[in-house]
Design a protein around this nucleic acid. Structure first.
Length: 775
DNA sequence: CAGTGAGCGAGCTTCCGCTTGACTT
């Protein structure tokens, strides 16, 4: 017989708590929610006051069985799931499913996993808050109704297996809207003028105004030729910089992306491992709060390491919308541990968390900003030099927060001593042509930031939401090469004005989110037919209602009814009245045939078409697939027409034709009925024969290196070099080669031994775009 | 490595949030 059973959500949390509580307590985990609406059906009886039908899924049956058994043997059951509405619902589902006796069940909550907090919680048990549970049921039911009623419309009107939802559809909308801003953007050029002056040491100053064009730039430099330069003003301003708050899920994802180049999913996997190893607190949180013990530990650490002067206790208020404050901020469990063991990625993430946490409890940095104005005697324009001197580094000693801005030179120089009225010499003045910047495309992390600002999604869903919109094919995460751009430079040096032209790379993108054609068509369909659902404020609006339900001032079923009645009418209407949506755009006429040229989404993706089907003459249109990176939205008539030049015959090589085409696996070179893929930077429309031959030779070389070993004993056994390194192939199945083994010297016997010891991973093919999921 | 929405047609796809493995690739 167990005295006390405590149930929490996470097994790692259970382990920690068990240590605090001693042997009268057994601590178990529910592994999150133990039941949910059926995955196959709507699972809501819209006729019977929205009664949800909850099901224990197969992967939860074992957990539930075990909990059932232990609860029967326990005197008191403490439900210790999180204090937010999901946590409350978990506790309620546990009561219902385990049929817990009210008399021996207690609900407790704590906000930090410390011994005091837990013991305190045990002293203050309460009942389950049914209103809070109902707010969760409303949230769950609303999401299900939206997702399961709109998605099937998309299957009929756009393409099968698509999806829509309160969170994902807004995420896609953000990306589509941004892409349209980028498409509509017209870059304008101007001239930025920088003077290189000479004080005691050389320094730089920028002209206060941008000049419109090269003519103006030259005219200004002409004036400078015979001008004097005088310091007209020197101002010194002390300023402060304060440290950023400790990490939440969203800010951790952003900083890990900016500083360590981790994807959002990568960051979460690494954080999970650090959490399970006991190195950090819980990683799915929106709280900025640090426990009293953590603040104390940080204080000791900082004073010991840097001195009293560097310490400053701070508490931070959570500002994000819809924050539910069930946990602490993400911080090291033991602040005196500056490093932990683990993979290099784990260590780097830990270090980032450690620095950010420690910095949040450190003093402000004191900075003196100096601004110097320099008059040009023959022009009303002035040069402005700004410098920054850090007088006390404070928290900067440990950590500085990065930003999304990709500005060129934000580094502030140290200025020499300058006095008002002093004349300065100029070494040279350079006017450089610059260009206004298009709005930045989203990265995974900047999308998370935006979603959090809008109060959409939760710490536990940011990473999965991004996976969903990528898996549905609404959005692509890609690198795109930039284009070359010429720019002009006008220089005044030694009394002479010269101009020159330079070339720079511009517009290159790395790991940015681009909408696909399907993403744009689905978005436009939803914006047209379900504007309310994809409104950026929809979540905020319903959240307010959930809050009212949570304090018992509104029935959840009434709220849902008010939403569902008109929503469902709209669903029926859209099913009946809306057209099949293929995003068609007519581009103009083909100059050769005079027939119309259009683009749209076809059965196999975006396609360009010349002419129409004519049932009388039996005439059929010509088709050509769009290339990667081309959008229905922005493709031009010329670009579309060029697609019909494929496949292109480039002539003969070694007596066989060299043909460029685009197939299921992308652009290729075909030669002697062998296929070689084009590289990302190769354009199938313009690739030369020389380059194609290069690819053919390269492909042959790769193929020859593929085979590492064959064996006389067994023709079906081979050691091969694959995309993931060397492996063993035997009877169409593949086997890993153990680490530290040289594939070149493996004997027949050794191979067979490896095969016996390993389960075969026979190259099963997955459909592209289908999410891999454990069965 | 081609096709470019139907007309024989079963049955399938889908949401958001709470959790961790079990899996290739």
């Amino acid at each position: 017989m167990t005295e006390n059973l405590v149930i929490v959500e996470s097994p790692a949390k259970a382990k920690t708590i068990e240590k605090f509580l001693g042997k009268d307590f057994t601590v178990k985990s529910s592994f999150g929610h133990i039941r949910d609406l059926s995955k196959k059906k709507l699972g809501i009886d819209t006729e019977k006051n929205y009664k949800p039908e909850y099901i224990i899924s197969d992967d939860k049956k074992k957990v539930v069985e075990e909990l059932k058994k232990i609860t029967k043997e326990s005197k008191t059951i403490w439900l210790a799931s999180d204090e937010d509405r999901e946590g409350e619902a978990i506790a309620w589902h546990l009561c219902e499913v385990l049929k817990l006796d009210k008399a021996k069940t207690r609900r407790i909550v704590f906000h930090e996993i410390t011994k005091d907090a837990i013991l305190n919680a045990i002293q203050n048990p309460r009942d389950i808050n049914q209103s809070l549970v109902n707010a969760q049921q409303a949230r769950r039911v609303l999401d299900r109704l939206v997702g399961f009623e709109i998605s099937p419309i998309l299957w009929k009107k756009v393409k099968p297996a698509l999806s829509a939802g309160r969170v994902q559809s807004v995420a896609v909308r953000l990306i589509v809207d941004r892409e349209r801003e980028v498409i509509a953007f017209n870059s304008e050029s101007f001239f930025k003028v920088t003077g290189f002056f000479q004080g005691k040491t050389p320094f730089k100053a920028d002209l206060s105004e941008k000049l419109k064009n090269q003519k103006d730039a030259i005219a200004f430099l002409e004036l400078c030729k015979t001008s004097d330069f005088q310091v007209s003003n020197v101002t010194k301003k002390p300023s402060k910089r304060t440290p950023a708050p400790p990490f939440t899920t969203s800010t951790l994802q952003q900083e890990a992306s900016r500083k360590l180049n981790f994807s959002v999913a990568q960051t979460m996997t690494l954080a999970q491992r650090l959490y399970e190893a006991g190195h950090i607190t819980y990683m799915r949180t929106d709280s900025l709060n640090l426990s009293a013990t953590a603040i104390e530990a940080a204080k000791n650490m900082i004073i010991k390491e840097f001195g009293e002067k560097y310490h400053h206790t701070r508490t931070f208020k959570t500002k994000s919308k819809g924050a539910q404050e069930a946990h602490e901020a993400i911080r090291p469990t033991y602040l005196d541990k500056q490093k932990v063991s683990g993979t290099s990625a784990e260590q780097r993430l830990y270090e980032l968390i450690w620095k950010r946490t420690i910095a949040s409890q450190m003093s402000e940095a004191l900075v003196e900003k100096t601004t110097v104005n320099i008059n040009v005697s023959k022009s009303p324009l002035t040069f402005i030099a700004s410098g920054e001197v850090i007088q006390f580094d404070g928290f900067l000693r440990v950590y500085f927060e990065s930003t999304d801005d990709e500005l060129e030179d934000t580094t502030k120089d140290i200025l020499p001593q300058l006095i008002k009225g002093q004349n300065v010499d100029v070494n040279q003045i350079v006017a450089t042509q610059r260009f206004t910047q298009k709005p930045p495309r989203f990265t995974e992390a900047s999308l998370v930031k935006k979603l959090e600002e809008l109060g959409i999604g939760r710490p536990s869903t940011y990473a999965p939401t991004i996976s969903t919109i990528l898996n549905r094919g609404y959005v692509l995460k890609e690198d795109r090469p930039g284009t070359e751009r010429k720019y002009q430079i006008v220089t005044l040096k030694n009394g002479k004005i010269t101009d020159s032209e330079k070339v720079e790379q511009t517009g290159a993108e790395k790991a940015k989110l681009f909408p696909s054609d399907i993403g744009m068509v689905v978005n436009d369909f939803l914006v047209e037919h379900f504007p309310k659902i994809v409104d950026f404020n929809f979540t905020a609006t319903v959240e307010k209602e959930f809050d009212t339900i949570a304090i018992g001032k509104k029935e959840w079923t009434e709220m849902i009814d008010k939403f569902y009645k008109p929503f469902h009418v709209n669903v029926e209407k859209t099913l009946k009245e809306s057209d099949y949506s293929k995003g068609e755009r007519v581009l103009g006429n083909d100059p050769k045939s005079g027939k119309s040229v259009s683009v749209r989404i076809g059965r196999f993706g975006p396609v360009a078409q010349i002419g129409e089907t004519n049932s009388e003459t039996g005439e059929k249109p010509q088709y050509a697939s769009l290339l990667k990176g081309q959008l229905i939205e922005s493709i031009t008539l010329e670009e579309a027409l060029a697609l019909f030049n494929l496949p292109r015959n480039l002539g003969e090589y070694e007596g066989k034709e060299v043909v460029i085409g685009v197939g299921r696996f992308g652009p290729y070179v075909r030669h002697n009925s062998k296929f070689f893929s084009l590289k990302k930077t190769d354009d199938p429309l313009t690739i030369t024969k020389e380059r194609a031959v290069e690819l053919i030779e390269e492909g042959r070389k790769k193929a020859s290196e593929r085979l590492i070993q064959t064996f006389k004993e067994e023709p079906e056994l081979q050691v091969l070099n694959g995309r993931w390194g060397p492996y063993i192939s035997f009877k169409k199945a593949n086997y890993k080669i153990p680490k530290g083994t040289d594939p070149k010297t493996l004997s027949y016997e050794e191979c067979m031994k490896i095969i016996e010891q390993q389960p075969a991973t026979n190259g099963k093919k997955r459909k592209p775009g289908v999410k891999s999921k454990a069965k």
